[in-house]
Design a binder for these strands. Structure first.
Lengths: 225, 225
DNA sequence: ACAAAAGTGTTGCTACTACACCCATGA
DNA sequence: TCATGGGTGTAGTAGCAACACTTTTGT
């Protein structure tokens, strides 16, 4: 048994939607292995991290300056040979956030941080392509029965904002009549008196997501369209 | 950073249904920590294991003599303090099987192996209660949109067998008229000419699960009742 | 008046729920 | 003939998909 030669990292697939495009947060590696490749933000589990979730949050903050976001554990990857330095188990996390809320800042062991459209990724370090595609698949499921979409839009949003998130994540158009009807019927949207102003055309009504009303829904609400 | 002090184990929550009762496979620990407590079968990731899945299968076979079963990764647990020996990350697996197909055999570092009803578990080592309850929750979901239930019954089965599995896993009765109707309509059951004989009352028709027909179903078929 | 997106209603269909009784068999 | 599960049908309802046009606003 080679217990002590196993290393554990915690990496995060952070998604956001920008102008209708689903994007992933990547950092550019400054050191070997995979020097100058783009990779998921993450790093070694530290014995001081109280939990894996906190380790993921810590690494994400250190490497990209993104903090205080929705994070959930995704899957663990541990095939022999996925890291040339030796046996490495990576616990992957999923994060959902709004780009506008953060100013990206690379850590000293990276030469860059950037958002990349999930459909136009550069070559990635390790098996990070596989990790991203697993995360994307999971997000598609999540968005259909959880309030995950609301982590990707501002607190006050229009129905269009919400629909754009669904279309970006699912990768297909949805019927907007049915979309609105269905979402308004769920009762998880709180209509505001305000309207969005930034447009040169008809202003749209703003809504809030109501967490409490969401909790009142049946076990597995379905937001599919 | 304390990279080398992190240990990785792979533990399995193996479920089966026996006479309408959902049961979990446990081993009795022979050594400290938690000596003589019951625990999930599992052990340290070995550098020779090509994948985590294979590590889980290997440990399950070594510790209980159960092999060649449906296995899927569940979740990773890594809170500080969950193992008194030091930082330990456990990658938990879910297994589904039929008790009749295996003869349990404890490994030399265990003093027993047994099936325990999930609702009457003894005190467990480490945070294994949490792991089991996570696995149970996941199984409830899985059974509703995947053919997981068929891993818990023999190849040839009656609709009653199938219904008992759903009731055991979900922990509630289901309407048997609707259950039959719905399942027969999915088209994933192949009716056989044979009937089950072991009863002292009316024999029931036997069915086979058709994997190919299952693949033809929509993305997320729903077997909920 | 034009461009752009906001917003809305109806119809047909499918699929779910709820519910109660007769049937076949072995002992 | 009795006990036990095997097996079936219907009616009401809810919710989904498909589909096109009018409204509001800024320029």
């Amino acid at each position: 048994m080679s217990i002590d030669s196993v290393r554990v990292t915690v990496d995060t697939v952070a998604f956001s939607v920008q102008q209708g495009v689903l994007e992933v947060l990547l950092v550019k590696r400054k050191f070997e292995p995979f020097k100058s490749y783009w990779a998921l933000p993450g790093g070694f589990l530290d014995d001081k991290d109280p939990t894996l979730d906190e380790a993921a949050a810590r690494e994400l903050l250190e490497e990209t300056n993104v903090g205080n976001v929705y994070l959930e554990q995704l899957y663990s990857f541990g095939d022999k040979g996925r890291d040339p330095r030796g046996r490495t188990v990576t616990i992957a996390y999923l994060a959902l956030l709004r780009q506008e809320e953060f100013e990206l800042k690379a850590s000293s062991d990276a030469s860059g941080v950037a958002w990349w459209p999930v459909n136009e990724l550069p070559p990635l370090a390790f098996d990070h392509h596989e990790v991203v595609s697993y995360a994307h698949k999971r997000l598609k499921y999540k968005i259909e029965y959880s309030p995950a979409a609301f982590s990707l839009i501002p607190g006050k949003f229009t129905l269009r904002d919400l629909q754009l998130v669904y279309e970006a994540v699912l990768g297909r158009a949805v019927d907007n009549r049915n979309f609105r009807k269905k979402f308004l019927n769920t009762g998880v949207l709180q209509e505001l008196a305000e309207t969005s102003q930034e447009t040169s055309f008809r202003p749209a009504r703003l809504y809030l997501f109501s967490e409490v009303d969401f909790e009142r829904l049946p076990d597995r609400p379905v937001f599919v369209f």
